[in-house]
Design a binder for these strands. Structure first.
Lengths: 190, 190
DNA sequence: GACCTCATTTAACAAATGTTAAAAAGAGAT
DNA sequence: ATCTCTTTTTAACATTTGTTAAATGAGGTC
């Protein structure tokens, strides 16, 4: 529980009391590679803190999987649509490795938001943080080429090609796996 | 002030008192087409509510402008980077038409967040809402082709081609204006 | 109306990416 | 080491998009 508490505090400083209230509504889960945290169409109200392991979110488009998010240690997995807008999520989130997670339920969290201003501000900060992350994924897509994004990906997560299939990375980058192979083959040739 | 109050309440229901506190820290501004709400590199702490008019956000990439956001009546303009992360924003936001806006300052808002739980929850909802909007722009980019996105754009904003230059729309879609012309010419031909 | 300016479309060619299929490389199990 | 299954790379060709430049269109001014 130590690491997760640090993760929570890093978002927004909390008093002991608020931290106790938050940890009281969360519990630990351990799941194997291949386990689905969410499935498309659900209105899941769970918020997962990924302590150990790797995950990806994907969407079915014309019967093909399009991966659009990777999560690693320290990341948070939740369906924004289901969580914030009450709409069914369009994403499936799959564990790529055996994982340790901490889980909270939105309903429990919601009642803390209404009663404790510190936790309400923590929740605000959580949303703001996820917003920055989402905007960065958006920017990356809008401003950079697939090659630039691939280089930045292996720069930020040097072991990603060991942990994630290249097919998933290609679909994350919005290109085919053939094109990704060409990019990987062409290093140095600009 | 009527319309803007409705806009604020639509995010999250507020008591009279909270609404008064919020409206006390905002003021109206009127600007002409071409006025810049933000310039790239600034750490602007302003939040604009666009009551009337149109705007776009763009970023300079290799000396070229890349438009990545359009705002119309009812939309909110703020630099997430500057506002939430304290980093300099990378975006310039330009008015595309003469506009009426309401402006708040983040510092004033911040002190209300710390004192009034209702306003803290309103701020949470504001961030959650912007998160959904940003995710939708991201999804649109990741899951749909430029042609599909163009069709959905003119479907949602039927007058957008009257209000926004096609060059801006093309860069928003991530294609050149020549390709956009080809898409526009090819209606019906699948 | 003729002229000017800016926005948009069209044309011709070059470059990049997609598609399909086959070959090569890796990882596990026997 | 061999076999099998999966992942990744390569090849050949088709399609799409980019690039540059010219042509057309639309609005405003004299």
């Amino acid at each position: 529980m130590i690491a997760i508490k640090e993760r929570i505090k890093a978002l927004y400083p909390l008093s002991e009391k608020s931290m106790d209230l938050l940890t009281a509504i969360m519990h630990k889960e351990v799941h194997q590679k291949g386990y689905l945290l969410f499935e498309a169409g659900e209105r899941s109200k769970k918020i997962y803190f990924l302590e150990k392991g790797a995950a990806r979110a994907f969407h079915y488009k014309n019967d093909k999987e399009v991966t659009f998010w990777f999560g690693f240690e320290g990341d948070i997995a939740l369906s924004y649509y289901a969580y914030f807008a009450g709409k069914p999520g369009y994403e499936t989130i799959e564990l790529l490795e055996d994982a340790t997670l901490y889980v909270m339920n939105w309903d429990d969290l919601q009642s803390l938001f209404l009663q404790h201003i510190e936790i309400a501000n923590w929740g605000r900060k959580l949303a703001e943080n996820e917003l920055i992350n989402t905007e960065e994924r958006f920017i990356s897509h809008q401003f950079f080429s697939a090659k630039e994004r691939y280089l930045s990906l292996i720069n930020n997560y040097s072991d990603i090609t060991q942990r994630v299939l290249l097919g998933h990375i290609a679909s994350y980058l919005g290109i085919t796996q053939v094109t990704l192979s060409r990019i990987r083959a062409g290093f140095g040739k600009k």
